[in-house]
Amino acid sequence: MNKYLLANMTWQEYQSKIKSSLLILPVGSTEQHGPHLPLGVDAMLAEKISLAIAEKVPAVVAPTISYGYKSFPASGGGPLFPGTVDLKGSTVISLVYDVLEEFLDDGWERILIVSGHYENEAFIAEAADLLMRKQRESIPKILLSNWWDNVSEEVIAEVFDEVPFPGWALEHAAITETSMMMYFAPELVHEELIIDEGIEHPPSYQSFPPSASMISPSGCLHTARSSSVEKGRMIVENVTNNMVSFLEKEFFLKVKTTD
């Protein structure tokens, strides 16, 4: 049982942490991640990164929002694969707005949203902005970030030592996500099903309805070959440290010396 998860706390335990802790809200999606990774990758990684942060600074991790806005074929596959469950953009905004409003009403003054799904971010940002745009004080404050923008250049170079870095849009179900899943949940990674398949020339347009011709049959956008547990550990530690660094700055949090 993880002691940082809000869902595992009594209401008294939860209440006792509001003034002294950071509230972290992980937001992901449920969508295809090729033949070798589970549908819940985005939500799982958002929650695991959140818990890694909670190991370093006083924090409570809220229940993960596990549904998100649809991906396009060249950034995740969209609605072309069974098991991908998409929300309308307006639904994402309303859902995140309502959840954040409840936490603010409880008294939280420092909130971090950890995004694990690229397509969610504009809608999460809209929810936070609508909620906070009339506030003039610096606190309460909501921060929105993700794991990929917190990977340092030197770590990218080490992770992509065998395969060229294709850019974050094509890293869906590829080396970084596969490596982090190997590190966090190796039992959910089907290494024998990793294939060298992807999109060689990403389209410069979108199609409505989405066209299956724009994505590989497997749903992979780039190869996951050369993924490893060690690369996953390297990414997670780097991302966690970089996120903790800006949390110290923005929220005046101190890294825990003992737990």
Score class of each variant (00 low, 15 high):
Gly219Glu: 04
Lys48Gln: 10
Ala125Gly: 13
His222Phe: 15
Asn120Met: 08
Phe160Arg: 00
Pro217Ile: 12
Ala212Gly: 13
Phe251Lys: 06
Asp149Ala: 09
Asp161Asn: 13
Glu191Met: 07
Gln32Asp: 12
Leu25Pro: 02
Pro210Ser: 07
Gly83Glu: 07
Ala59Asn: 04
Ile113Trp: 00
Glu153Pro: 02
Tyr97Glu: 09
Gly116Thr: 10
Leu39Asn: 05
Ala7Pro: 01
Ser228Asn: 06
Leu87Phe: 10
Ile194Tyr: 09
Lys141Ile: 03
Asp105Ile: 07
Leu130Arg: 14
Glu137Cys: 01
Phe184Lys: 06
Trp168Arg: 15
Glu162Trp: 01
Ala174Gln: 04
Ile49Asp: 03
Leu80Asn: 04
Ile194Ser: 05
Ile199Phe: 03
Cys220Gly: 01
Lys48Phe: 10
Arg225Met: 13
His172Asp: 02
Phe251Ile: 09
Leu130Asn: 14
Thr64Ser: 13
Leu6Asn: 09
Glu109Ile: 00
Pro203Gln: 03
Gly107Ser: 10
Thr84Asn: 08
Leu144Lys: 09
Lys56Gln: 13
Lys134Ala: 04
Pro63Gly: 14
Val255Cys: 12
Ser228Pro: 06
Arg233Ile: 00
Ala174Ile: 09
Glu55Ile: 08
Asp129Ala: 14
Phe103Met: 14
Met243Asn: 00
Glu121Tyr: 11
Val163Arg: 12
Ala169His: 08
Thr30His: 15
Leu143Phe: 05
Met9Glu: 04
Leu143Arg: 05
Arg233Ala: 06
Glu171Pro: 03
Asp42Gly: 02
Met180Pro: 05
Ile49Leu: 14
Ser94Ala: 13
His201Ile: 06
Lys134Cys: 05
Asp161Val: 10
Leu6Gly: 02
Asn120Ile: 13
Arg110Pro: 02
Tyr67Arg: 13
Val229Pro: 03
Asn241Ala: 10
Leu130Val: 05
Phe246Lys: 03
Ile49Glu: 05
Ser227Ile: 08
Met132Lys: 01
Ile124Leu: 13
Asn2Gly: 08
Gln15Thr: 14
Val61Leu: 15
His117Lys: 05
Phe184Ser: 06
Ile124Ala: 06
Ile113His: 00
Phe160Val: 09
Ser29Gly: 07
Ile142Gly: 01
Ala46Gln: 08
Phe103His: 12
Lys56Asn: 10
Asp86Val: 10
Ala52Lys: 12
Val61Cys: 13
Leu25Cys: 07
Ile215Met: 07
Met181Glu: 10
Arg225Lys: 15
Gly28Thr: 06
Gly83His: 05
Gly28Glu: 03
Ser145Leu: 08
Leu247Val: 04
Asn150Trp: 02
Pro38His: 13
Ala122Tyr: 15
Ala169Pro: 00
Ile175Leu: 09
Tyr14Asp: 02
Leu22Ala: 12
Ala174Trp: 02
Ala212Arg: 15
Ile175Tyr: 01
Pro209Lys: 09
Cys220Tyr: 01
Ile65Leu: 14
Pro166Gln: 11
Trp148Gln: 07
Pro79Arg: 06
Glu248Ser: 12
Leu170Ala: 12
Ala185Asn: 14
Asp105Ala: 15
